[in-house]
Design a protein around this nucleic acid. Structure first.
Lengths: 147, 147
DNA sequence: CTAAGTGCAAATGATTTGCAGGTAT
DNA sequence: ATACCTGCAAATCATTTGCACTTAG
């Protein structure tokens, strides 16, 4: 693993400090969850998790801070169809996902062909590509064995 | 153009008839809009459009019928982040989109590299890929000229 | 001190559902 | 005749916002 959770958290907290905004306990705790979670948690997941330590924390605070952290460029929003959004604080930039339709597992593949595809689109459409969303859905190796 | 709006509408209406469900005027009108619109309309767009001919039509009817048409395999839901869903009745199967961040235009590119990418994912992850969502966002040629 | 942040509850906006009356087959 | 449908309004669900009260710097 090239970047550790600790490093991600430090980078987030540092960016926050530099921004001049306040480092509240709730805000830092949300950053910690985002930096550590490999599960692409939803706002609700984060809220539930933090209620242990901050019994009175409100969902509004979680949403507001996720929004802030996104705007600092330190979290990436994954909008999977149907359900609400999920967030990735470990790779805070657009990247492809592969989602298992049976167990819900999400993996982040490295795709050599992504560069080619972007080029192909630019050539064919004349668009200047800024970002993307690229999700594949199927059955993971474990679920393929089960059935 | 390989398939005309007329052909798409006929295919939809035919599938509906075969399903044993009723061919109500509202339902057929929604199919007509979906088969003709190149704009990937939202449920609200369709509702607004149909209010001319059906002054009392409700949004619920539009939503219920879009859901039905989707389940017949005759429309494809495009879940763009932020805004609500939009629908494609002309290509009722998964396909990539390129969306202009400024004017909202959506085009459907043909991507040679999609096959390669699917292969690459299968090889790298062991997933059996069933479907995908693939959206690129940027600025269209017209908007690039403006600024 | 005081701008920024928080909790709470009410507001949103897209979509859905319950129900009573209509309509296609 | 009778399922299936429709319109209406109320209900969801995730997310956002207004407001009065804290708190970090």
């Amino acid at each position: 693993m090239s970047t550790t959770a600790r490093q991600r958290y430090a980078a987030m907290a540092e960016k926050l400090r530099k921004s001049g905004l306040k480092s509240t306990p709730q805000r830092l705790a949300i950053m910690r969850v985002l930096s550590e979670s490999k599960r692409h948690p939803s706002a609700d997941d984060i809220w539930r998790h933090l209620r242990r330590r901050f019994p009175g924390i409100s969902q509004a605070t979680v949403y507001r801070n996720i929004m802030l952290i996104k705007s600092l460029g330190e979290a990436y929003e994954i909008a999977l169809a149907g359900a609400g959004c999920r967030y990735d604080g470990r790779k805070p930039y657009p990247h492809p996902h592969v989602v298992c339709l049976e167990c819900g597992e999400i993996i982040d593949p490295e795709l050599e062909s992504l560069r080619d595809m972007t080029r192909e689109i630019t050539a064919a459409s004349g668009f200047e590509i800024r970002t993307f969303r690229l999700d594949f859905f199927g059955r993971c190796p474990a679920c393929r064995k089960k059935n």
